[in-house]
Design a protein around this nucleic acid. Sequence first.
RNA 1: GCGGGGUUAGCUCAGCGGUAGAGCAUCUGCUUUACACGCAGGAAGUCGGGGGUUCGAAUCCCUCACCCCGCACCA
Length: 877
Amino acid sequence: MSEELSNRYDPKEIEQRLYRFWEEGRYFTPSTETERPKFSIVIPPPNVTGRLHIGHALVNTLQDILVRWKRMSGFNTLWLPGTDHAGIATQMVVERELAKHGIVRREMGRDAFVERVWAWKEEHKGYIGDQLKRLGVSCDWTRERFTLDEGLSRAVRHVFVTLYQDGLIYRDLAMVNWCPQCLTAISDVEVEHRDTSGKLYEIDYPLVGSDRRLTVATTRPETMLGDTALAVHPEDQRYRDLIGGEVIVPIAERHVPIVGDALLVDREFGTGVVKVTPSHDRSDYAAGQRNNLPQLQVLDEAGLMNAAAGEEFAGMDRFEARKRVVEILSQRGLLRSVKEHSHSVAYHGKCDTIVEPMISRQWFVRVAPLAGPAIEAVRNGDITIIPKSWEATYFNWMENIYDWTISRQLWWGHRIPAFHCANGHTVVSETDPSVCPECGTAEISQETDVLDTWFSSALWPFSTMGWPDETPDFKTFYPTDTLITGFDIIFFWVARMIMMGLRFTGKVPFRQVFLNGLVRDEQGQKMSKSKGNVIDPLDVIDEYGADAVRFTLAILASGRDIPLARNRMQGYAAFANKVWNASRFALTHIDSTLKSAGPIDQDQLKIVERWILSRVNATTLEVNKALSSFRFDEASNALYQFFWHEFCDWYLEMVKPVLFGRHGDEATQRSTRRVLLEILDRSLRLLHPFMPFITEEIWQKLGGVEPSITIAPYPVTQQGIDDPDAEKMISTVQAMITAIRNVRAERGFTPKDRFTLHIAAPNQREAQFFLSYAYLLTDLARLDAVAVNEPAPPGAHHDVVNGYEISIVFPEKTITPEQRERIERELEKSRRELDSIIARLGNGQFLENAPPAVVEGNRARQTELIARIEKLQKNQP
RNA sequence: GCGGGGUUAGCUCAGCGGUAGAGCAUCUGCUUUACACGCAGGAAGUCGGGGGUUCGAAUCCCUCACCCCGCACCA
């Protein structure tokens, strides 16, 4: 065969060329008309205007391994790619961009702004796709979707209207999480609680008609301007008699009642007196409702104090107001104390702003009725969550679920299909009404709010397939089989897809969920731009090649944290180079292509061939098994071990004597070459899901039947190929070679020094074996002769290997003290092991209770150790 | 407070009832005609502490310590 491969693997040269080849061949586009079983997954859609980070690289590598494996295993495989519109994030980016040019969103108007965002999206939409292609993912790009596509938007609208009609969507005035920076409501799961060190202020409130003062503890003194009561515990002896009385709210100088509320007040905390601000605190809001307290809003939607806060404060920022309030209280002697206080503060993760509880009119999904079936689906096994420990988290959240705030005060997104008329009617409809169906007025306009992006993501597994239409794709590929995503979006996305899928299609959206870990840096730190420890997938792909990056991610993929270090990638780039060079070597010795090679002639097989076929079969079993259970680490590790440490280190070395004509007749050579082709072919196919580029590049040179390795059959274990005898004998040969190499290093000989090996074979058959395969020992251990059942001359080095006595004859050489020490250590180790085995075998309980195989194993080991120690002792001069 | 995960070689992790493993790093030799991103050999761990179950425990149970992650609470 032609030999023009470079002696160094250069990923840059081949990766992008091969990706084009795959796309042009449409290998990743499945059929909707086939009898073959299907396998389908949908991508967790990244933000359309975003950039791929290393976490995306991980989740997409794992999906691609799974998908390529299934495709090669004969499934009609669909991996549907796409992106979401990421409402807040995208709007924020475009606003910031406009701000550079001094343009303000509200001044340009809704339509113009939305148009501008679409333009931005068009500009950036290709970026994520290109990055994914660099990674080598086998998505079907002909089916790419975007959450704001017409079809998906229709699904969103249909779901909204249906849920509304079913009474599961409602609009209400309620306290929600408000982001004063983004000027929108957000849902509970978008709030990040962070432990923050703040201050606890104790403030005196004068009692009306008395000299007494009540001391109240608060972390947010500025909200006192909106206090409408103080609350004490109704059974608190200290304050019980004050209930029904009034206090003066300092600064505001307003009279408010003292109420008793057992739910709000914890007698143990602080002073046992709580200020109640129903408009600006979640639990105060509830307390206000229980006690019929008025609401007094003193903060506006931007987090500034409003007119109700008083003339001095109007327009002042909430944190500025806090300082000012404390100052005034202090001047008036009403500030009792200020203590350091650590407590949890709610932040909006997207913009790092402290969230403000705010009463506003929003749209909600009543989640509890949806949660029931979703809980049941996991409980009864219709959906399996892997690793299983995540089920507890899922149940815990689902069983204590709150209604979901789905409206956002944004412009970028699915506009809520509700219409308000001039007479106060609201209609929710799949088509835009021109007049109000209630009163007939034409003065009707659409709701200005848009939906939470996750509302559309929740429909992703079926909206992308054409639902609500019964399209061929929907019928063929829904439900999907597996979802792979990060555990951090189990509530945002996974749970909601299950709820929506069950509600609207009557089926689970996927049967298995694999939750992958979080990529961290080598110290286990979360990657973040501010720490400067982020790894850009494109950077490392450029540096090490996509295959090396993928292999690294796969082999590290177990566990909840995935510490990623560049030197690991360097290690697997070396592995890619190893694959390249081993293949390069093999290719120069393969004399036919897969198409013309014909079947392997079983009768011609020599022990080396029988052994490597047995080993590749064992590896095949292990890899398929590991992939079935999402053990990407085990699968890739098995492949690494096999390819490097069996195929390269031993097999290729063992066939060299034949390939170079030092041993064997022509028939043996032919057979050896045929099997070499076979093993290389199988290895490449086994490796392909993990390292798609390099394996395709090499496999093309083997001349397979299929036009691309992407659709070549994935190896499965074969009957009658396992060969324990061959494995045992080859492992003995390996052990002997290792023993000789050991002595060589131990005694300070060089590779040029030649030894003679004497082997004691217990019977004729084995004697014949060692004579037939003496060439392996000679070649790999650099011997000048192998003698079977001939007495070794005096002074030879004796050992026992896999039960066979061997003697190594080498030139006279003095032993250095270091060498003697090493020999002594080795002997001592064997003695210690023997002692513990003797103790075990001397224990009647052990003999009685341990399984016979274990007892037998110990006996055999005892016999070997005794023989070995005896021989090693003889070596002592 | 509720729930989950972790503590094994210098580093990062696998193993989860029968003789302590891998990768990387490290040390020693080596231009062996595929590869120095290589070859060969080596050193390195009372498997977080304590107790228990068992013939036998990194592995199962109890307990303590420390670390991480959710959720809830936090005047």
